[in-house]
Design a protein around this nucleic acid. Structure first.
Length: 500
RNA sequence: CGGGGCGUGGCGCAGUCUGGUAGCGCGCAUCGUUCGGGACGAUGAAGUCGCAGGUUCAAAUCCUGUCGCCCCGACCA
């Protein structure tokens, strides 16, 4: 049987969405569950999420936030308090109506009519309302502010069409919720957390992002302003990777979050909320992976170095294994990005080629093979995941002293590769004609920077082209121009793209 | 909610039109030969054919009902 050229089939070029599914499967990240739209996150995928959590959590704490936990259930009436919020989420809420089951008389179960809840509970799609109601009790004086809270949780949004990690009915995330005495402070918080997300995405995930503000149509329901980080995937579609919302006094008024200021006057507080989810894992996959499977940036890799012992018999094993064990200890004594290098030995009773390909598909940055021949020369055989080729022999001593540098190099090169794709796919467009060409069905697409003014005409055109306005970049220079859709005057460009 | 498709060992499928002993590939287990880029051979374990009725001497196959899943659309802070 001829060896397939690539570990993943189809390739990205052949069928990108199918390639994505196959990578998730081949890398052992997750699988579909018995519940529609919900996935089982497997150990390798969950370990990546844990690394994401660990880094973000440290960044949240470094900016003064504390973790807390609020209920999974929210009384239905809470959702009704903020009109726009209802509009946004009501259509996709799971509702709990009973608290007991009973036999249905046909061998099955049914909700007991006598156990019907007086007021239905919804499973949180996001927690602004319940957290806001709680905050209302916590806040009385300006001395109680600011409140800076984060929670790690699961939420449910009954999406009709789901894709693993990118959009699932239940997903894991963190949601930050803060309360401030002044508008300015709340606005600064919103922007600070957007910066945290961007720093994390670029520094830890090696995923370049654009920081920007959402247009009115794309705003979080109930928010005054929504900011996001937007990343470009390898198929040139954009992915919203994180959002930070300035909620103004909307939720404070809806939920009665009031305090007395220095002058004894009663005022509504200013709130923010911000979140990222397991969708980041989807972004990670689509930013770096190739036709042999997942490619992990070292800072998030559950294992940064995997050692594969090669031996044919017990005698060889007895010399190879201790060599590997010592090497592993030497490697884990090294530091990369202020953490011990994560190395592991794969001594499973599997064929060598099989094992090697498993780790390639799982995206491990460095894979080492060590057999009697290497030991004789005090070498290891090193394969770097992000570059083509079989690998090279390296002196053991040299490997140990350079492992941190090599990981840093991979981290850097992944970022640069992604940034290069993005700049190649980014263009300024100043006419509707060019815009239509750029987003034509047959065109590769990408990021189009255009002058625009929100209008029904624009919405219609975007819908026709299956394209969306992603954001107005915060670092966009002010320049005068004309909206490509209506010709109205505009002083800033927005980013347009097809999106997930 | 509209259109289409599919439910058969762990996974992927054939068999259904034309009713007659449930099959194939992968995976799994054992043994042997192999082994530095995805091995090969032999043997073996594993399925009440989504569920419930009906027709029939006989149903994976035909009929009725029902449940579930997938794809396309609509929807998607």
């Amino acid at each position: 049987m001829p060896k397939p050229k690539t570990a993943i089939s189809p390739t990205r070029a052949e069928n990108y969405p199918e390639w994505y599914q196959q990578v998730v499967k081949a890398a052992d990240l997750a699988e579909n569950s018995d519940v529609r739209g919900c996935m089982v996150i497997k150990p390798w995928g969950y370990a990546i999420w844990e690394n994401i959590q660990r880094h973000l959590d440290a960044m949240f704490k470094a900016t003064g936030h504390e973790n807390a936990y609020f209920p999974l259930f929210i009384p239905m009436s809470f959702l009704e308090k903020e009109a726009e919020h209802v509009e946004g989420f009501a259509k996709e809420c799971a509702v709990v109506t009973h608290h007991r089951l009973e036999p249905d008389g046909q061998g099955g179960l049914q909700p007991a009519p006598s156990a019907k809840l007086e007021e239905p509970l919804i499973v949180r799609p996001t927690s602004e309302t319940i957290i806001g109601a709680t905050f209302a009790r916590w806040v009385q004086s300006y001395r109680d502010l600011p409140i800076l809270i984060n929670q790690w949780a699961n939420v449910v949004r009954w999406e009709l069409r789901t894709r693993m990690f990118l959009r699932t009915a239940e997903f894991l995330w963190q949601e930050g919720h803060t309360v401030h005495a002044s508008e300015q402070e709340a606005r600064e918080e919103t922007r600070q957390m957007l910066d945290v997300y961007a720093d994390f995405a670029e520094g830890v995930m090696a995923m370049p992002v654009i920081k920007g503000e959402k247009t009115a149509g794309e705003r979080f329901p109930g928010a005054v302003a929504t900011y996001s980080i937007e990343a470009l995937m390898q198929d040139r579609k954009a992915l919203q990777a994180g959002t930070s919302h300035f909620l103004g006094q909307n939720f404070a008024k809806a939920q009665d979050i009031k305090f007395q200021n220095v002058d004894g006057e009663l005022q509504f507080a200013w709130t923010t909320s911000w979140g990222v989810s397991t969708r980041l894992v989807g972004g990670l996959i689509m930013t770096h992976s190739d036709d042999d499977g997942l490619v992990l940036p070292p800072r998030l890799a559950p294992a940064q170095v995997v050692i594969l012992p090669v031996y044919r018999n017990e005698e060889e094993r007895n010399s190879v294994m201790p060599y590997c064990e010592t090497l592993k200890m030497e490697l884990t004594a090294e530091q990369f990005a202020s953490e011990p290098v994560r190395a592991r030995i794969d001594d499973r009773d599997l064929r060598g080629g099989d094992k090697r390909w498993q780790w390639i598909k799982r995206g491990v940055p460095l894979v080492l093979e060590i057999g009697p021949r290497d030991i004789a020369e005090d070498k290891v055989f090193l394969k770097r995941r992000d570059v083509d080729g079989k690998g090279d022999p390296v002196l053991r001593k040299e490997l140990v002293s350079t492992v941190a540098n090599r990981l840093a190099e991979i981290q850097q090169s992944l970022f640069e590769r992604a940034a290069a794709l993005r700049s190649e796919a980014s263009v300024k467009i100043d006419s509707l004609e060019k815009f239509e060409e750029f987003f034509a069905e047959s065109a590769p697409g990408g990021l189009a920077y255009c002058h625009f003014v929100d209008s029904p005409a624009m919405d219609a055109k975007l819908k026709e082209l299956k394209c969306t306005v992603r954001c107005v970049p915060l670092d966009a220079p002010s320049e005068s121009g004309k909206c490509i859709f209506t010709g109205e005057a505009s002083n800033r460009r927005g980013v347009f793209a097809r999106a997930y």
